[in-house]
Design a protein around this nucleic acid. Structure first.
Lengths: 128, 128
DNA sequence: CAGGATCCTGGTAGATACTG
DNA sequence: CAGTATCTACCAGGATCCTG
C-alpha cells in the first residue's frame, strides 16, 4: 500500500464506505453528471435543462435534480411569479466536485482507445 | 464555461457521453471500487478477496471481476496446478485510474460533514 | 411552467445449489 | 479452489397522465 492510500485510510471513519458509494453512485448514475456539467456552464431553468439534455424525461430530470439538491450540489430558486418558474444552479460545494469529476472524464478520454480495444478483444475471446 | 471545461469539450468525440457513463457507472456500482482498492494494495486470489471484502457474494465478486477485466483494469492469471487457483491484480491501466478515483474519495472525506448535514436538513424540510 | 402520481419494465444484486 | 446456474427481489429509469 502506498503513501497516498495510507493517508486516505488513516482518515476513515465508520460509514465512510457508504459515503464513498453514495457519492460515486450519484455521479455514476445516468443523468447527474450531465446535469452538473450543464449547470456548471450557467444557471438554467427547468425547461432549458430539458431542452439541453438530450433524451432526458421530465421525471428523471426532476428526480435527478432533487437528489443533487439533497446532497447540496445544486440549489433551486423558485420564483412565485405568474407563470411560476424556477432556476437551478450549482452550489459552491458542487463547484468543488467539478475538479475531481473532470479528472475522471479526462482519464476516460486519455484512455479511450485502450478501454474500447480492451472491451472488444475481451468480447471477442469470450464469444460463445 | 471556463477554460478547463472548454478544453475538455474540444476533445469530445461521438460516443464519449456513453464512455463517460460506462466508466463512471463502473466505479459507481456497488463493488468495483472496493475490489480495485483491495487489489491496489496487493494482488490476491479469489478466496482472499472474498474474505477481505465484507458481505460480497461469490456471484457478485465474479461478475465484478469480469467487468473490470473486460475494461482492462484488472488482470487474471489462472494457474493450472492441482488444485487450480487464480490470482487477480490491477493492470497498468487500472493503476492510472487510481489517482482520479482517490481524488474523489478525498473530496468525499473533505466534505463529509457538509454532505451529511445537507442531506439531514433536506430530509427534515421534506418530511411529510 | 414545473412538476407530482402511477404503472410498468429491464437490469443489478442476493440466495442457494451445483461443478471442473 | 474457483467458479456456474438458476431463481427471485428490488430499484433505477421510462411512459403516460394529471395538477397548482
Amino acid at each position: 500500500m502506498d503513501q497516498q492510500l495510507r493517508e486516505l485510510k488513516n482518515r476513515f471513519q465508520p460509514g465512510d464506505k457508504e459515503l464513498f458509494h453514495s457519492v460515486l453512485a450519484r455521479i455514476g448514475d445516468k443523468w447527474s453528471l450531465m446535469v452538473i456539467i450543464m449547470l456548471s456552464k450557467k444557471s438554467q431553468r427547468y425547461t432549458e435543462l430539458l431542452d439541453n439534455i438530450p433524451a432526458i424525461s421530465r421525471r428523471m430530470l426532476t428526480v435527478t435534480l432533487r437528489q443533487l439538491e439533497r446532497d447540496g450540489l445544486v440549489h433551486r430558486i423558485v420564483h412565485a411569479d405568474l407563470p411560476p418558474w424556477s432556476e437551478y444552479g450549482v452550489t459552491d460545494l458542487g463547484l468543488t466536485l467539478r475538479e475531481p469529476v473532470v479528472a475522471i472524464a479526462e482519464w476516460a478520454l486519455d484512455h479511450r482507445e485502450e478501454i474500447l480495444s480492451n472491451r472488444e478483444s475481451f468480447d471477442d475471446s469470450h464469444a460463445d
